[in-house]
Simulated scan of single mutants.
Amino acid sequence: MRVGAIVAEDGIWHGGDLAMARVLFPEAPQPWVDLSTGINPIPYPLPALPLSLWTRLPGADDEAALIAAARSAYRVPQQADIVAAPGTQILIELLPRLAPAGPVAILGPTYAEHGHAWRKAGFTVTEAPTPAEAATVVVVNPNNPDGRVLSRVELADLAAHCTERGGLLVVDEAFADFTPETSIVPDLPAGTIVLRSFGKTYGLAGLRLGFAIGAVDPIARLRAALGPWSVAGPALHVGAQALADADWLAVTGAERARDAARLDALLAPHGRIAGGTSLFRLLETPAAPALFDRLGRHGIYVRRFQNAPQRLRFGLPGDEAGWSRLRSALADDAPEATPPA
């Protein structure tokens, strides 16, 4: 099977596309074990939601409660501002409105939607392991997919580099919740916008909730671009409760770190563990295309990369059945059974 023959309409491969998995592997056993995302497989327990959250427009008090919880959870400085959005993807699309004309440097390889958004907005984009002389620099920290982390000192130096050129530093901290020491938010430098994602850590990606943090003026411009009622009432309610639950975050962070170590042990015989976070691990092996194909035939979908065919990214199984299927598929002794009736 030519597993690389089908791509997304925008040319970017994403995780979580089980429709694609079914096309590639129509005879795979069901249900699928989807390890192609970096989403926590054991979500935050949803609270009971009042019917009114579905029948009325989101209220200002609900939004204020969410923002207060987010400011505390992300340790936002008093002089900085924060805006909520229906996921960080829309914020990625809006960020080019805040930057001056000129080239953009993205520290990569990394999440492809950053470069895609800036190119759509007419910017010249360079993706490289180190920043060029561009005024605007984008960093994913911890990085997706290899988990690379720049220190606060390194990020502050990058922010100074951008400020001197009248530009912007964008730091995407989508995977920073379990490693708060990596976040630059508490010491937010001038000219910096930080993105935070809710759905990945809390396992509720379908809720569509994300945040941008920065100085008052650029955050006000993002808020105006988003318009009123940009975040749904249920997302405001669930987000406020979850972000205030520090105990859940601490316990879950420790559990996912143990799961990541367990996954490393399973993957190590099959190649080099090239990094990752506690929500996903990156495997490098010349046999990656064959391994992707083998796993897919066993109903296990992992993340591949069109520009790095030797890499596969593995999310975490969410239960023992998923762990067992992954272990068997890696050993190539899993029965390619007919889907259960």
Rank of each mutant, 00 (worst) to 15 (best):
M1E: 14
A5S: 13
V7S: 13
E9G: 12
W13Y: 12
G15H: 09
G15R: 07
G16M: 00
A21N: 15
R22F: 02
F25W: 15
A28G: 07
A28T: 01
V33W: 07
L35M: 01
L35A: 03
G38I: 09
G38C: 07
I42M: 09
Y44P: 04
Y44D: 05
P45E: 15
P47N: 11
L49G: 10
L57I: 11
G59H: 02
D62N: 07
L66K: 04
A68K: 05
A73M: 09
Q78L: 10
V83M: 01
A85K: 02
P86N: 01
I92C: 05
L94R: 00
A99E: 03
P100G: 00
A101N: 03
G102A: 03
I106M: 11
W118Q: 03
A121K: 10
E133G: 15
A135E: 07
A135Y: 13
V137Q: 00
V139W: 01
N143M: 14
N144L: 14
N144H: 14
P145A: 08
P145D: 10
S151C: 04
D157L: 12
A159E: 14
G166S: 01
G167C: 07
F175W: 13
A176L: 03
F178Q: 12
T179H: 11
S183P: 08
V185A: 06
A190Y: 06
T192I: 10
I193C: 03
L195H: 06
S197C: 14
G199S: 10
K200P: 06
G206C: 06
L207K: 11
L209K: 05
L209R: 10
I219C: 06
L222C: 01
A224C: 04
A232D: 13
G233W: 09
A235G: 05
V238T: 04
A240P: 09
A240S: 13
A242E: 09
A242N: 05
L243I: 13
A246K: 10
D247A: 15
W248F: 04
A250W: 12
A254L: 03
A254C: 04
R256C: 10
A261F: 00
R262F: 12
D264F: 07
P269M: 06
G271V: 02
I273D: 07
A274R: 05
G276M: 15
L283V: 11
T285D: 05
P286D: 12
L291G: 02
G296R: 07
R297P: 03
R304K: 15
R304I: 09
P309N: 08
L312Q: 13
G315N: 08
L316F: 09
G318E: 05
D319M: 03
D319Q: 08
E320F: 00
S324T: 15
L326N: 08
R327Y: 00
A329W: 06
P335H: 09
T338E: 08
